[in-house]
Design a protein around this nucleic acid. Structure first.
Length: 519
RNA sequence: GCGGGUGUGGCUCAGUGGUAGAGCUCCAGUCUUCCAAACUGGCUGCGUGGGUUCGAUUCCCAUCACCCGCUCCA
């Protein structure tokens, strides 16, 4: 099976069996937006619950929060997202290349511009385009000359000075808080300033808009820095300690791709681990190992398909002193699942600077080198394991997908070999046939599972074989079947998804056997 | 954003300038006692908007979405 086929099959299975649907499908769909169906929501929640269990419940040193998605814009000014998330993008009108104006090589305004192409043919086509635009230029082989640089940069690809206007592309979703409509104010400003240039007017409109502008968070991390004091004080946290959060984040991605892998609305599982500066190296080692192993031990992912990759120096954000990505071998290649970044004391210090509120830790035992006495305030360093819940869900589906060919003239089957703990439905309970009191008996048994918090599904339609195969396809690890013998001696058959093996067991034992296999 | 491809019932696909079929699924019934059984009957569709035409699912244009590659990815 080719990799492209695999992705198509996953996407198709997701829709067919109720894992993931295209958002707003009946209206033609919305780019990069997906809805989780009845089984998808179970799977995603199970994955996120595993994370929460491992990162919060099972640990003394980490606590969770659930912050609001919209925060005061000052947060994003301090974090740097407002400025660095805004890229001035320009399109080349000749070669169609899109590039960042601030990253283009600087040239002298008014100097001669040479537009060059990889071959004569492309140059010829470009010359025709330019003629249609009303420019009379000369072509010499692969190059076109005679144009003048109108700005202090030209196209990074072909050197053309014929460019679109700079468009500010903000990676954060902007909206406005409050029911007030500022259109009147904008119109009045325009009427009052008819003599201003276009750029000056844009600036003024932005000023008006910014009064009510708020942003959807592009990451969950900032709330954990902003609430540092509240969490530390209310929970009496002692260094090193962590704050964890799961939730939706939003980014106006330039390119969205690979189904739910990169989408504008996505879900994160992030944790900020605060520590003494001198501990940060050791904690980095600890977290990258811990997080890597989580995928193997707690999600049951194939070890061979996971790797830990250190960022090159040129990949590192300026405030970060080291960063590792947990990557998975997706059908399209190795790609990111989680980033574990050492962020130094950058974030807390930024917020301290902007909010004028001290975001520091007080250690009563530590000797302050300045005074030589016990007791010292300082800004902790932070290690941030930031995982994508959405892409983890996709990865789990891909990793679990398997097809078995049919043997002895029997139909082949599709199996999701999910770890039982992650399966949307843990147990399916069937009456062998729909009569002789079997349905009632089966329902009674199903109730005993749901009462224990195990997601259990009763089903009676179709033939028994079809029910088994359908549950293989959605990853249900156990099927229990009630037959005539059950009515006599209270035994049932348990059928295992992975090898289709069947065993006859007592009803009384079913619950404990399955509970054991779920842990 | 660029280039290429795709869009036909729930799924996978076929097909035609005269409003469409198959397999599977689904629903009802008969029958069925363990791995997608059989039989009978039934529901559901040409992504959207324009244009050409007597007539468009088919041709043209636009648009939306998805896939592949490039670009981008704090």
């Amino acid at each position: 099976m080719s990799n492209e086929d695999l992705m198509q099959k996953i996407v198709s299975l997701c829709k067919k069996r109720g894992f993931v649907f295209q958002s707003s499908e009946i209206y033609g769909g919305l780019k990069s937006a997906y809805d989780y169906g009845p089984l998808g929501v179970e799977l995603k929640r199970n994955i996120m619950a595993e994370w929460w269990k491992a990162m919060v419940h099972e640990r003394e040193d980490i606590v969770g929060i659930d912050a609001s998605i919209i925060m005061k814009p000052d947060v994003w000014k301090a974090s740097g997202h407002l400025s660095s998330f805004t890229d001035p993008l320009v399109d080349c009108l000749i070669c169609k290349e899109r590039f960042r104006a601030d990253k283009a090589e600087v040239v002298e305004q008014g100097s001669d511009a040479v537009i060059s192409f990889s071959d004569k043919g492309k140059a010829k086509v470009a010359l025709e385009t330019l003629e249609k635009m009303g420019h009379d230029l000369k072509r010499n082989g692969k190059e076109i000359t005679g144009a003048t640089a109108e700005r202090n940069y030209v196209c990074t690809n072909c050197g053309s000075p014929f460019l679109s206007e700079e468009k500010n592309f903000n990676l954060m979703f902007k909206t406005s808080l409050g029911a007030v409509d500022n259109k009147n104010e904008i119109v009045q400003m325009l009427l009052d300033n008819k003599d201003l240039s276009k750029n000056e007017l844009i600036k003024k409109i932005e000023d008006i808009e910014s009064k009510s502008a708020v942003y959807l968070r592009p990451e969950t991390a900032q709330a954990m820095f902003v609430q540092f004091n509240n969490v530390m004080n209310s929970m009496s946290m002692k260094l090193p300690f962590g704050i964890a959060q799961q939730g939706k984040s939003f980014r106006n991605e330039i390119t969205v791709e690979h189904f739910i892998f990169r989408s504008c609305e996505f879900e994160q599982m992030e944790m900020e681990y605060f520590c003494y500066p001198e501990q940060s190296k050791e904690k980095m080692e600890y977290w990258k190992e811990t997080r890597f192993n989580w995928y193997i031990d707690r999600l049951g992912i194939n070890k061979e398909k996971l790797r830990l990759r250190a960022h090159d120096d040129d990949e590192l954000a300026f405030y970060s002193d080291s960063c590792y990505d947990v990557e998975y071998a997706y059908p399209w290649g190795w790609d990111e699942l989680e980033g574990i970044a050492s962020r130094t004391d950058y974030d807390l210090k930024q917020h301290e600077k902007h909010s004028k509120v001290k975001l520091q830790y007080f250690d009563a035992e530590r000797i302050n080198p300045e005074t030589g006495k016990k007791g010292m305030h300082f800004t902790p360093y932070v290690i941030e394991p930031a995982a994508g819940a959405t892409r983890t869900t996709l990865m789990v589906l891909i990793d679990a997908y398997d097809e078995e060919p049919g043997v002895d003239g029997k139909e082949g089957r599709t199996v999701l070999r999910l770890l039982p703990r992650l399966a949307p439905i843990k147990v399916a309970i069937f009456p062998l046939v729909k009569k002789d009191g079997m349905p009632d008996k089966a329902r009674t048994i199903a109730k005993r599972f749901t009462e224990k918090g195990i997601n259990c599904k009763y089903e009676e339609q179709h033939a028994i074989g079809k029910r088994y195969r359908r549950h293989d396809e959605i990853g249900t690890p156990f099927c229990l079947t009630i037959d005539t013998q059950t009515m006599d001696d209270d035994t049932i058959t348990i059928r295992y998804r992975d090898d289709m093996r069947q065993e006859r067991i007592n009803i009384e034992d079913a619950l404990s056997i399955i509970l054991e296999k779920l842990n």
